[in-house]
Design a protein around this nucleic acid. Structure first.
Lengths: 142, 142
DNA sequence: GTAGCTGCAAACAATTTGCACACCG
DNA sequence: CGGTGTGCAAATTGTTTGCAGCTAC
């Protein structure tokens, strides 16, 4: 499982199509969270036109494979970003996402995890999952 | 075009219509988070039939008035609950929501707020808002 | 050659809005 | 009465699915 996402694809899983590569590349270069629509537009602008359906499908594949993260904006729209930059893929972490440009920083919050477990236990709840998302303005947009 | 907020409405009681009262009552008796659809169904079951549109409109009014809380489920659907039971209305707090029955506990998390501010500041982000939602199984459904 | 992608259009689900009518105050 | 809330249907929006054709392997 220790495989960089650079170019190598697990040979049995995803097929190396032009579209999948374009989506992954664009998402990587974006270096921030993007919605499917935004990605679709950026791809078209780049000349690597890809169907919106394909964008959604590949994004979901990336998420399932643990290669991308999703955060749900306050308006409910989903934003995607390749993960594993600073944290090990699969590791639990959260994000601070810029409301303007989508640029984000991965943050690990052991205290938050501990807090979540503690209050949940105190309330008698089990099998806790939690959603922690921070939105703000990055240094360039403050 | 849309200015729903700034309306000279007495903030403690919305207009006394049968529907608004039914919605508020049902939501209160539910004692947990409910989606608009669920509320709509429960109202119909109760015999206090109310249009789905009206359910949505009143829920949004309650939220704007600070009388109700919303949490967004992982699948994106919105769930509503009257707040102010154990915490002062308007006070910042979070919820542990039962994935099965919607029953929830309000929790204040000063540590989380502090953590959020700290990591945000460390990353150079400003005007931080955060979403913290805990989902689990309540004692009755563990 | 063939299973797996792609992509368009149509389906979908949650939520909002237009507009005529009902009803509170 | 007069304006506001209601409710049905239709419009919106984000996302998924059906299905024919293309493509990588």
């Amino acid at each position: 499982m220790t495989e960089p996402i650079s170019r190598s694809r697990p040979p049995g899983r995803v097929r190396g199509t032009r579209q999948a590569a374009a989506i992954e590349d664009t998402l990587r270069e974006a270096d921030g969270f993007r919605t499917a629509q935004e990605l679709f537009d950026e791809l078209r602008r780049r000349g690597d036109s890809v169907g919106l359906t394909t964008v959604y499908r590949n994004l979901n594949l990336l998420v399932e494979a643990g290669l991308a993260d999703v955060v749900h904006r306050e308006d409910g729209e989903s934003q995607f970003r390749l993960c594993g930059h600073s944290a090990a893929a699969g590791e639990h972490h959260h994000h601070i996402v810029c409301r303007v440009c989508g640029r984000s920083v991965e943050v690990a919050g052991p205290e938050v995890e501990a807090w979540a477990d503690r209050v949940a236990a105190a309330a008698g709840y089990t099998q806790i999952s939690h959603t922690v998302e921070l939105f703000g303005l990055c240094p360039d947009h403050s």
